[in-house]
Amino acid sequence: MFLHEVIIAGFGGQGILSAGRLIAYAGMLDGREVSFFPSYGPEMRGGTANCMVVVSEEPIASPVLNSCTALMVMNNPSLEKFESYIKKGGVLIADSSLVQQKPTRDDIKHFELPATLMASEAGNKAFSNIYLIGKLIKETGIITPESFEKALYGVLSKSKHHLIPQEMEALKAGMEY
């Protein structure tokens, strides 16, 4: 069954929530059932942020996850907090420019890419989350790159549409890493 339960976690300001929203939006465009549940409140401002995204063939029971098929992390505390959530055989994707810690488990698939470094080398730090989404797409097939591009057009305001080709470059680089 096509069922992806993803937790994305890091600091506020890293694009954690927008990454989740984009995946959910793209999943909808792929014709799947989707849900997105963000952490909310003061913790978003400079503190930790996380969100839970489900993309599924079937109607989604709960948007609140106690376990996940994939975890995407952009800081050490998030890895500590959510590592145990990953289902056996599940996927961990870490931004290795910020996450120095290694997972303690050996029953999961662990991928690293220096997303923040890659983004700043490419000239736009705000796209670090996109590199990670690229890697997630490659390793799980949660959404199609085509729908992701459409999602960017759907979610971003018109004034930011000129950046979308760059973002798609970032996605591609993440997929190919």
Partner: peptide
């Protein structure tokens, strides 16, 4: 509740 208010779905 906060889950319903904050979550996104189609």
């Amino acid at each position: 509740d906060g889950v319903l208010g904050q979550m996104m779905e189609v």
